[in-house]
Simulated assay, not measured.
Amino acid sequence: MVIVSTLGFGVATAPASAEPVAPFAADPSGEAPCPEGASRTATIDREGFESGIPEPGFANGWVSIGTSAPEGARAASSSISGAADDPEDYLFLTPRRASGATYLAFASRGSFRSGHGIMAVNSFRLSVPPSSGWSGRVADITSAVDDEDGWLTPWFSHTRTTGIPARWDVDNIQLFTCAPNATSRVEGSDRYAVSAAIADTFAPGDAHRLCRSWR
C-alpha cells in the first residue's frame, strides 16, 4: 500500500494496524477476506466436509450431506427434533495452532431460532443468526489464541427450541491469520511537490494514475 500525502494540504493516511473484520460477510464461497488494510498470511485449516465429519468421535448429531454447498458438493448438517431427548448437537473440528491476528470464517444457513446456533473457539463465543440461504460469517478470534498456548479448537453447538424442529448447515470453514499490509509514504510540501516525488518513485503509467486520483 502507498500512502500519498501533502504537507499543508491535509494528509491521507492508512491505519497503523488493520481494523477488525465485520462479524458478518455476504459471500459464503471462496476465500474469506482479511480486514481492510491487511492480507492473509497463512491458512491454518480449511474444512468442506467432502470426506465426512473431521472428528467423528467428537461430534453428536452432525452429519456430512450432499447439497448445493458454497464449496464442493457436501456440507455438515444438524437436525434437531425439538423433543426433550434431543437437546443438543455439537461438532468439534481438529485442533490447530495459531499465533497473531487470527480469524474463523464459515458459511451458514438454518431454521434454528436466534441464540440456538453458537460457534465457539476456546473462550470466544459467537451467536450465529439464522438464514434461509447460505451466508458468510467472518469472526476475529484473536482473543482465543492465548487461551491454550495457541491451540484452537473451533466447535459448533446447535441446541433445541422446545417442540420446534430446526436445522443448521455449515460449510467452507476457514481458520487463517492476517497481517497489515506493508506501507510506504510519498510526501511533499504541496500537490506539485507530491507529483514530482511520485514521478521519481513510480513508472510513468503508474505515476500518471496516482496523480489523476489525487487531483
Rank of each mutant, 00 (worst) to 15 (best):
S213W: 05
R212G: 10
P28Q: 04
S17C: 01
V2Y: 12
L93F: 05
P129F: 09
A166E: 14
R191A: 13
L175Y: 09
G110S: 08
T162N: 14
L7M: 11
F24I: 15
A120M: 10
D45A: 14
S5Q: 15
R113L: 14
N181K: 12
G72Q: 06
R191I: 11
S77Q: 15
M1S: 13
D149M: 13
L7Y: 10
V63L: 11
E88Y: 11
R113T: 14
A193M: 11
I65K: 13
F176H: 07
L104H: 00
A83Q: 12
S64D: 06
G61W: 06
P180H: 04
T43Y: 10
T162K: 13
P56Q: 08
S131Q: 08
T161H: 04
L7G: 03
S131R: 02
W155T: 11
L104F: 07
T161Q: 12
D190E: 03
R160G: 00
P87H: 03
G10L: 08
I44G: 08
E19G: 14
P56K: 07
V2E: 14
V138M: 07
R212F: 07
D147W: 02
T162I: 12
S132A: 13
A22F: 04
D27V: 12
S127A: 15
G10K: 02
R137N: 14
T142S: 12
G72W: 05
G82F: 01
A197E: 07
N172D: 07
N172A: 08
R74N: 14
G37T: 06
G205F: 06
A38C: 08
R137D: 06
A69K: 07
A83N: 12
T13D: 10
E31C: 05
A120R: 14
F49V: 00
R167A: 15
T102Q: 02
T102F: 01
F112C: 04
G117R: 10
G188I: 04
D45H: 02
A12M: 13
Y103E: 07
E88V: 15
I44W: 05
S114N: 11
L210M: 15
G100Y: 06
A179D: 11
S64W: 03
F156G: 01
V170I: 15
G163M: 03
C34M: 10
L7N: 13
G100I: 00
V128Q: 10
F58V: 02
A76W: 08
A84H: 04
P15K: 09
R160V: 05
R137Y: 15
E50F: 00
T153C: 05
R215K: 12
V63G: 02
A203G: 12
G136F: 03
D89R: 09
N122L: 08
S123N: 09
F9Q: 14
A59H: 08
E55M: 13
T43Q: 15
N172Q: 01
A207D: 03
W151Y: 11
S127N: 14
F92G: 05
H116V: 04
A144L: 09
R167Q: 15
W62I: 08
A38E: 10
R209P: 03
E31F: 12
